[in-house]
Structure formats: structure tokens, C-alpha cells
Design a protein around this nucleic acid. Structure first.
Length: 810
RNA sequence: GCCUGAGUGGCGAAAUUGGUAUACGCGCCAGACUCAAAAUCUGGUGGUGGCAACACCGUGAGAGUUCGAGUCUCUCCUCAGGCACCA
């Protein structure tokens, strides 16, 4: 009898899959797909360290879903690729003194080897590598489309500046005011940058969220990130001037309590509104605010600072003159960069008013709120208006509408929704990215590189370090930079910034099914039949930005007429994280596990099953290597059972267990609860092998199919042993359970007396409540509690329990 | 501070969504096989008391609803992740 040798089995089947193209599509198959199922997972950044166990965990969980769908008759397209541009690769290359042009290909080769070794059902004919000119040609093409549509614009903007990496950082790359890569403190700079106008789509991105089949947490995260606030613009006339200042407020009901105004130091009207008597202190404040790095600026617990401009504006509702201040607690990027300060009802304004001795006027009286102006803190709740002239007595909600309507009639305000979402800055003053396909002409301005001239190939630079000035390394390659304007032919210069990696990954899933197409980024016919993606699985760390950017891009391409769908991912689920020694497994924590040795020792199948058995896939699990013995024993016993199986039908008890197992495993896999699916299969195998009984072929063969998504290699081998022709994924179908077979003739029924379990009885499933009650009362341990008492009530939960409620003893 | 999750044996975790808490696995204990070990197989394994039948206690803490609560409601504690001067 053969014993199970994972390495032998796995190399055999991996070779067979390659030879027979088991997992490959060709262009014709992609164009004419019946029952298509696009099984997408977030592609990795190919690090030099290789895939770690957390990557394996994520990809295995996604792969199981794909294999399961395939066994259920779907044509499953499961591609893989590499998100290989970007700052991490570049920084790593700098660190080890190599060039990313050499580093990345070898990393990709290593990743590919690892991904093949774990037995993923990947279509290696449709891979994507974002650093391949054949790919980024189309990333640049997309940029050009957005540029032509006015959805990407160039403007000067204050950006996060990392003095260590010498580059601009996106807000999300700044963690606690520090660079996410090198931990250096981040400062500010003003540079001309390319922005994608994602805020144009804020309301649509928000409105579609409820219709998506995504986990609730991800939807909430996206919703909060977009951050819609309903409120109003209010215009305040500047005293002795014909200027006015627009503010945004969510509390127009507190307008009578506005006792001063605050502008952000960066506000465009600051200089104009500064009285000459104050100009020195104002300039000093503005200057220092500019110098402040983001750490300082972001601290919310520090004292409020600010300067009076020396001018006043008029509160439009009560004509009162109120002073205008500037302070860095008002953000230039949000709303209008100016606020009306209502110290009685906003804590920040309150702190500022206390510090600078500004008047505090109560205008909202809450039921449990303060009754007069002597406040310890702002009252930010709702209530009834006071000190508000004709609006006195209204409740907050009413007053908001009435006051806004009133202002609107007078042309001094309007209801508006603002968003926290900012435009997406995609400029990077770096080397390792796709060059932004723009040529700057002194006469024509920025001109898009003509589509037939794409790609703008990233030149090979020996020295790709960023410099102190923040200029892109590409600016040093003068032969590359100096070109003629595509419009007028004059001497012009290429844009030397490269684009953000998030742009590469915002559309990769559109390229996968279309990699056979050379003259276009994608084919609408193919896309419309395969998208939206049926299942997308990835990490929660991308639940906000990546998903948002790719949603935006899909919507924009839809609006430009390229696709029929406007949402890319019908279903998204985030996998959990692996925990080890109480900490999540990550490179920065230094507790990563390299899977290669584990696979050599136990085989990919065992590792796959073990990882899935750790805990619910969406919650992650606690990685303790000794636990791998469970799945290993299971696979050994499964192998033995198939070897020993004799021809014949299922025994009735085993058959019932089988159908219960099919039901549970199917449901568990659908719900991504792989751990309970594995548990059910183990339980069933225990039944099959109980007390040394000899398994029947019909008892084990459905189990082999159910194991297949988890452990594809051993499943193929056992399927072949059972006399079937490979591949199991093309020739087996997922077992179907018969609900009738789940019905049992007898059930174990719990008997409760006054809510406490007193006995368990075995009874006929069809017994009536009266019969059961009689049977129960005969049980000595039940009789102990019931014989002397009145039976008040009996509750029967069929198949589960009988609950007897008794009164006091007679 | 705000938003998400999550707290169940020695450990990873189950519990058909209000119905017999601890399935499945790890570990541990005992036994079989073995000269021995590993592997494998068999049985046991929440706590306290009891020879036993059984009783009481037990799902982060406390209250509540209910015949019945890990599950629902309220108050609180702890941990993980995210956001944070967003007017």
C-alpha cells in the first residue's frame, strides 16, 4: 500500500496542470464565456523577502472560493499579477544598493515560483506586471483620457514632504505625522502637482455604497472616508468693504451665536483683510504656520493659537460686527477654509474664545444643557433656540431649515453638502513609476503625449536617488527630457514626475482578461461579460484608498463610454490577519513566517488546510505551528481511507452523516467560514472510519471532492485512485445533499424543568408534544422535580427540547 | 474623543442566530503496538463536591427581558484595528 507523500503528489499534479493548461484561458474562451466567474484577489507587491505566510493565507482563502465555484460549474478566471512600481521597491533598492530594474524581475520570478508551489489556480497566461511597458503604456493612456476629460488637473499645492525619502507623500502615507516608510517627521512644501478630481465623484461614490455586496465594516470605512456633511454656506460681508467671506457650517441654527470669525492661515483673503496695525503679527503667524510640520499641526490637544486681523465682518442675521481672526485650527482644505465661530456650541471655538477673551453667546438651550452663558464647556447638542430673534423657540432641526431658507431668500447663503474627501494627488517626485505622459511647452502649456507615442518609457537611470530640491530624478536625464511640443513643434520638456502606484492598481483588474489584446488597454465586449468582478478578496488596509480609487476610475471610464458597468467589484470581502505571539504578523514587527520550509516539510495541501482551519477567514487566526498536525493527520487518514475503500453503497447512518456534512461544508465555504468546513469534514471522516470499519467508495468519493478546494493536489491524486479521469476540477461536480436524508427517525431531546436541563430522552421524531411530555415525566430525574408540583406550561421546540414549567410544590 | 470588530476550557476555536455551551483540532493523561523512541491506533480530558446516581458553579463584569440568554436590552471594563481640530 502506498503511503501519502505530499511532495511527490504535488509535483506530479502541478506538472500535469501546466501540461494540460488546466487553469488557462485563451482569448476565444474569454470572449465566449458561459457562467463566468471572475475570482480576483489583490495582487502583491513583489518584495525581496518573498511571499510570507500572511500572503499565502490570503491567496489560499481566495483560491478556495475559485475552486469551489469551478466545481459548481462556473468558468472561473483567476489571474495573478505584480504591483511592482512604487516607493517600497525603490527604497529597498536604494537600501541594498541595487537598481529596481534588476531587483524587480528577480523578485517577480521568486514570487511566481512560490505562488505556483502553493497550488493556486492561477491563469499564468494572463498575468499583469505594472512595470512592464506593455502595461504602463495603458496606465499612461488612462491618464491621458482623464486629462482630456478635465478629470486630472495641475495645481500648486501644499504637500507632505518627507525630508528623509525626499519626496512628496500622500496623506495616507503619513502616520502620526511621520513617514510610513522611514518614520522621519514630515513637513510641508508647495509644488505644482497633478491631481485627479475624485471629489467630483464624491456623491456618486457615496450613493452607490449601499448597493454593494461588501462587508459592513468596509462600507462604513468608505462612507466615513468620503465623509459627507450636510450644512450651509453663509456669506459674511466685510465691514467697510464690498468684500464678503463665505463660511461653511453644519449648524446654521447657531448663527446668532457666532461672535467672531476664523480663517485658515492659508486663506486667500488673509492679506487683504489684515489691517496695517496688525500686519506684522499676522505675517509672523502665517509664516510660522507654514513652517510647522504636520505633526505639530495635527495635534489636537495643544493650545489654540491665533491672531486678530484687525478687521471685522457683519453677521448677516443680526447685523452685529464681529472680529476676524486667523488660526491653524481651521483647515484650508475643508469647507471654505473659513468658519463662523460659535463658542457656546463648539468646543474648539469655546477653547479659542476663552483663551483670547472673546464673547460667548448661548443660543441653544438643551433639555439637559446649560441655561445661561456661564459655560464650562461648549454645549454641542440639539435644543431650542434662544437669543435668536424671530427664530426663538424653534428646535434646532427646524431652525436649520428656516435660517438657511431665510439666508437663501436674501442671497446670503445656501444649503450644501461638503465632503472630507480630497482630490487625489498622483504626482511623485520619484524614479520608480510610470512617467506622467505630459510635455510642457512654453507656448501651449501642458500637452498630453499623443496616444500613438505611448508608452513614455521610463529610462534606465544608474543614479535614481531623489535630490534635495525635490526634483524628480528623471529631470537629470536631459536627452530624455528635452523633446519638441507635439502641438507646435517648439522645444519643450517632458513632465519629470511619475505617477502614484495607486493609479497602477486602480485598473489592473480590467487588464487581466484583456492581456491578449495589444492595441488597446481592454476590450469592452470581454469586460462587459466578466465584470463587475464576482468576488474580490484582499486586505483591510486597502479597504479605503485602493477600493475608492478603482471605483472612481471605473466610474470615470464608464462615463467616458468605455464600459457598461460603473462599479468594479460586485462582492468584496476582507480577509483577517494572522496573529503570532499576540501580535499581527508583519515585516515591521519582525515575526514573519517564511512558508517555503513549511511547504517542504508538510506539503502545500497540509499548509493550505492548516491555515484555513485556524479561524474564520474574515477574522484571521492565531498562528501556532504545532497545530499543523491536525490537518496532516486528517490527510493521512483520508489517503488511507481511499486506499482501503471497498466497492459499495453508503451505509444508512454514514449516508445521513454524509449529507449533513455536504450541507454544512457547502454553506461554510459560501460564507468563507473555512474553519468550520474543515471541522465538518474531519468529523465526517471520523464517522467513516469509526471503530476500524472499512470505508465504502461511495462514502469517501464525495469527501474527496469537498476536500479539493482546500487541498487540490491530493484530491486530484485520490480522484485518480478512485478510477476517475483528471482533472477533478473539470470532471467532478460538487456533491448535492438530499434534505430528505437529513431527517432522522429518532432524536435526542433535552428536557428542561424551570429552565434547567434535567434529562435527555431519545424519542421518535414524529412524536406529539403530549407523548413527549408523558415520556419525559416518566424519567426519574424529571419526576424528581415535577411529581409534587403543578405543571403550568410546556414548551416544545421540535427536535431540540421540551421545557416544562412548574409552579410551587403542592 | 469618534467609528468598527472581538472577549467562551491549558491553547486555536464551535454553537443550526433565543433552545442540550465547549463541536473539530492542538496539547495533556492513560492504554495498545515496540527492546526503545517516533509514527499510528483506542479511551479520557471545564471547575467544585460525591464511590455513584447526581448536584451546584461556569461564555470579560453587573443588572434586565424570557419557561429558557454565549446569543436580545441597558451600564461598565479590557484588547485589536481604523479615523481624528472636517466647523
Amino acid at each position: 500500500m502506498n503511503t501519502y507523500d505530499p511532495t511527490l503528489v504535488e509535483t506530479k499534479w502541478q506538472r500535469r496542470w501546466d501540461e494540460q493548461g488546466t487553469n488557462l484561458f485563451d482569448e476565444a474562451k474569454l470572449r465566449h464565456a458561459e457562467k463566468p466567474y471572475y475570482n480576483l484577489m489583490m495582487f502583491p507587491y513583489p518584495s525581496a523577502e518573498g511571499l510570507h505566510i500572511g500572503n499565502i493565507y490570503a491567496y489560499t482563502g481566495a483560491d478556495i472560493q475559485g475552486r469551489f465555484q469551478r466545481l459548481n460549474g462556473k468558468r472561473v478566471f483567476e489571474p495573478m499579477g505584480f504591483d511592482a512600481f512604487g516607493i517600497h521597491s525603490e527604497n529597498f533598492a536604494l537600501k541594498i544598493g541595487t537598481n529596481p530594474n534588476e531587483l524587480i524581475p528577480s523578485n517577480i520570478a521568486n514570487f511566481t515560483k512560490q505562488l505556483r508551489r502553493i497550488g493556486g489556480m492561477f491563469d499564468w497566461n494572463h498575468t499583469v506586471d505594472t512595470t512592464d511597458p506593455d502595461y504602463y503604456r495603458w496606465t499612461q493612456w488612462i491618464f491621458v483620457q482623464l486629462f482630456k476629460a478635465g478629470l486630472v488637473v495641475r495645481r500648486k499645492s501644499a504637500v507632505n514632504w518627507c525630508p528623509q525619502c525626499k519626496t512628496v507623500l500622500a496623506n495616507e502615507q503619513v502616520i502620526d505625522g511621520k513617514c510610513e516608510r522611514c518614520d522621519a517627521q514630515v513637513g510641508q512644501r508647495r509644488l505644482p502637482q497633478w491631481f485627479v478630481r475624485i471629489t467630483e465623484y464624491a456623491d456618486r461614490l457615496l450613493k452607490n455604497i449601499p448597493q454593494l455586496d461588501w462587508s459592513e465594516t468596509t462600507k462604513v470605512a468608505q462612507t466615513n472616508w468620503i465623509g459627507a456633511s450636510d450644512g450651509a454656506y453663509v456669506d459674511f460681508a466685510v465691514a467697510d468693504s464690498d468684500m464678503s467671506i463665505k463660511v461653511f457650517t453644519t449648524r446654521p441654527d447657531t448663527l446668532f451665536g457666532a461672535t467672531y470669525m476664523v480663517l485658515a492661515p492659508e486663506h486667500s483673503l488673509v492679506a487683504e483683510l489684515t489691517d496695517s496695525s496688525q500686519s506684522e503679527s499676522v505675517q509672523a503667524y502665517v509664516e510660522s504656520a507654514r513652517q510647522w510640520d504636520i505633526v505639530e499641526r495635527q495635534k489636537t490637544d495643544r493650545d489654540k493659537t491665533g491672531v486678530f486681523l484687525g478687521s471685522h465682518c457683519i453677521n448677516p442675521v443680526n447685523r452685529k460686527s464681529i472680529p476676524i481672526w486667523i488660526s491653524d485650527y481651521v483647515l484650508a482644505e475643508y469647507g471654505t477654509g473659513a468658519i463662523m465661530a460659535v463658542p457656546a456650541h463648539d468646543q474648539r471655538d469655546f477653547e479659542f474664545a476663552v483663551k483670547f477673551d472673546l464673547p460667548i453667546q448661548l443660543v441653544i438651550q438643551g433639555a439637559d444643557g446649560p441655561q445661561n452663558d456661564s459655560l464650562d464647556a461648549a454645549y454641542s447638542g440639539d435644543g431650542v433656540l434662544v437669543n435668536s430673534d424671530k427664530f426663538d423657540g424653534l428646535d434646532s432641526e427646524d431652525a436649520k431649515n428656516r435660517i438657511v431658507a431665510d439666508l437663501q431668500d436674501r442671497g446670503l447663503g445656501e444649503a450644501v453638502t461638503t465632503y472630507r474627501l480630497h482630490d487625489w494627488c498622483i504626482s511623485r517626485q520619484r524614479y520608480w513609476g510610470p512617467p506622467i505622459p505630459i510635455i510642457h511647452c512654453p507656448d501651449c502649456g501642458p500637452v498630453a503625449v499623443p496616444e500613438q507615442d505611448l508608452p513614455v518609457v521610463l529610462p534606465y537611470l544608474e543614479d535614481f536617488k531623489p535630490n534635495e530640491e525635490g526634483e524628480s530624478p528623471l529631470s537629470r536625464d536631459t536627452t530624455w527630457c528635452n523633446v519638441s511640443c507635439p502641438k507646435c513643434g517648439k522645444d519643450a520638456k517632458r513632465e519629470t514626475d511619475v505617477s502614484d502606484t495607486f493609479l497602477d492598481s486602480a485598473w489592473y483588474f480590467l487588464r487581466y482578461p484583456c492581456t491578449d489584446i495589444e492595441d488597446a488597454p481592454f476590450n469592452s465586449e470581454i469586460l462587459d461579460s466578466w465584470l463587475p468582478v464576482h468576488s474580490y478578496i484582499g486586505g483591510n488596509e486597502h479597504a479605503v484608498l485602493h477600493l475608492l480609487y478603482s471605483r472612481f476610475l471605473t466610474m470615470a471610464l464608464h462615463d467616458l463610454g468605455f464600459t457598461k458597468f460603473e462599479e468594479p467589484y460586485q462582492k468584496f470581502r476582507a480577509h483577517g490577519l494572522l496573529i503570532r505571539d499576540g501580535k499581527k504578523i508583519s515585516k515591521s514587527r519582525g515575526n514573519i513566517v517564511v512558508p517555503d520550509d513549511l511547504i517542504v516539510k508538510y506539503g502545500a495541501d497540509t499548509v493550505r488546510m492548516y491555515l484555513m482551519f485556524l479561524g474564520p477567514f474574515e477574522q484571521g487566526g492565531d498562528y501556532q505551528e504545532h497545530g499543523i498536525h491536525g490537518p496532516r493527520t486528517f490527510l493521512n487518514r483520508l489517503w488511507q481511507s481511499v486506499e482501503e475503500a471497498e466497492a459499495g453503497e453508503c451505509e444508512p447512518d454514514v449516508e445521513r452523516a454524509l449529507h449533513a456534512t455536504i450541507e454544512r461544508v457547502t454553506r461554510s465555504i459560501r460564507e468563507l467560514r473555512y474553519n468550520t468546513a474543515v471541522a465538518s469534514m474531519m468529523e465526517y471522516l471520523n464517522t467513516v472510519r469509526a471503530e476500524g470499519r472499512r470505508p465504502k467508495v461511495e462514502e469517501v468519493s464525495p469527501l474527496v471532492v469537498m476536500v479539493a478546494p482546500f487541498c487540490p493536489h491530493i484530491a486530484e491524486e485520490l480522484f485518480e485512485k478512485l478510477g476517475r479521469s483528471s482533472s477533478i476540477f473539470d470532471n467532478a461536480s460538487w456533491p448535492v445533499y438530499d434534505p430528505k436524508l437529513l431527517e432522522e427517525q429518532f432524536v435526542e431531546l433535552g428536557i428542561q424543568v424551570n429552565g434547567k436541563l434535567r434529562a435527555t430522552i431519545r424519542a421518535d421524531t414524529n412524536a406529539t408534544q403530549d407523548e413527549l411530555q408523558e415520556l419525559a415525566l416518566e424519567h426519574p430525574n424529571v419526576a424528581r422535580y415535577t411529581s409534587d408540583a403543578d405543571i403550568k406550561k410546556v414548551i416544545h421546540v421540535p427536535g431540540r427540547m421540551l421545557s416544562i414549567v412548574v409552579g410551587k410544590s403542592r
